[in-house]
């Protein structure tokens, strides 16, 4: 059996993998939802929904598994974070419910008013979910006012301070761009031409917010920059990040959308990595007294549980990757409206 500290470290990395998997996969379908209202016709909206139709619920399972793994591997962090973000997470839940239902029900009848309602629901819930993930991430970067007994008393308004708002804008613009590139890959004709325009616009917005967020992070989260002094190899991540971002317009100019998509995946992965590196070894930094922060060493489950879970993950993850690959293979190619479509 591996020692307790190594197991905690492995689980921190595995949670990072789940987080990256989730943000890359659900990132594009949240982005498609955000772009949904600017589509020109009902057919285009149906095509957009069906581009993610067979994929979105599998993508959301990454979030569910991330939650379950956090609960099991770092139960104290799960308990503190979920109760600290009570209102924000309730809103997130409502958004996720509404999103699932909007997708499922929108095209069930022809009535335009019915469809308009669910169109709005699909957009608003996708936007809200993307935004709240950023807000939660931004707050964790800043740290939470966590007292000695691991509780946080903070209202939603206090959690909507400028820095988390900027990070919320970052996730929204990033996912929108990611979703637009995905749509470009999955569509053809007029819709694809529009998706190309959306990519450029979303890229512009993202670039502005990205620079703002970078500056803000340097000012607001000095801990993050100290990490780079201690571990210079971490510089790989921001360098890769910038290269990946720069490669998106390059690939689009060269009509290589698959590279653009790979680059936006890499951008998401790099940002998630930077987030993890910035808070490590904390899971919940305390702003009241840094000594009270929940670290991977204080929040962890017992060595035995972490060990069993590692075994479960080693058996389970190859299966998961296989199904995911099979599903994406079965539903490869351009999206078309069929009789089983939404």
């Amino acid at each position: 059996m591996l020692d307790h500290d190594t197991l905690a470290m492995i689980w921190f990395v595995l949670l990072g993998v789940l987080l990256i998997g989730y943000t890359i996969l659900d990132g594009f379908d949240l982005g498609v939802g955000i772009l949904h209202p600017i589509a020109k016709s009902d057919e285009q909206r149906r095509l957009m929904m069906n581009s993610i139709g067979p994929l979105w619920d599998g993508n959301e399972v990454w979030l569910v598994t991330f939650g379950g793994a956090l609960f099991a591997a770092f139960p104290y962090a799960y308990a503190t974070v979920f109760s600290a973000f009570y209102v924000a997470f309730m809103l997130l839940l409502f958004a996720l419910i509404f999103r699932a239902v909007s997708l499922e029900f929108r095209s069930k009848t022809e009535n335009p008013a019915w469809r308009r309602v669910w169109d709005f629901g699909f957009f608003a819930s996708s936007f809200l979910a993307a935004f709240l993930f950023g807000v939660a991430g931004g707050n964790l970067m800043l740290g939470l006012p966590m007292s000695q007994n691991l509780t946080v008393h903070q209202t939603l308004l206090e959690q909507l301070s400028p820095y988390p708002l900027v990070i919320g804008a970052l996730t929204v613009t990033l996912f929108t761009m990611h979703g637009a590139i995905f749509l470009y890959l999955k569509t053809e004709g007029d819709l694809q031409k529009q998706a190309e325009q959306w990519i450029w616009r979303a890229f512009g917005f993202f670039l502005v917010v990205y620079m703002l967020a970078t500056m803000f992070t340097l000012i607001e989260v000095p801990r993050a920059t100290h990490k780079f002094e201690e571990h210079p190899w971490l510089w790989i991540a921001p360098i890769l990040n910038v290269l990946a971002i720069a490669n998106i317009p390059r690939a689009m100019f060269r009509k290589q959308p698959a590279y653009a998509f790979a680059s936006s995946c890499a951008t998401i992965a790099a940002l998630a990595f930077l987030f993890a590196a910035a808070i490590f070894p904390d899971l919940v930094p305390s702003t009241i007294d840094p000594a009270w922060s929940l670290t991977i060493y204080t929040a962890r489950a017992s060595a035995k549980t972490l060990d069993i879970m590692l075994l479960i993950a080693l058996i389970g993850m190859p299966c998961v990757l296989t199904y995911t690959a099979v599903i994406y293979w079965v539903f490869r190619g351009k999206v078309k409206l069929e009789r089983t479509s939404y």
Partner: peptide, 8 residues
């Protein structure tokens, strides 16, 4: 938590 993660 471990049962819940296994479920996922």
């Amino acid at each position: 938590g471990s049962a819940l993660a296994a479920e996922g």
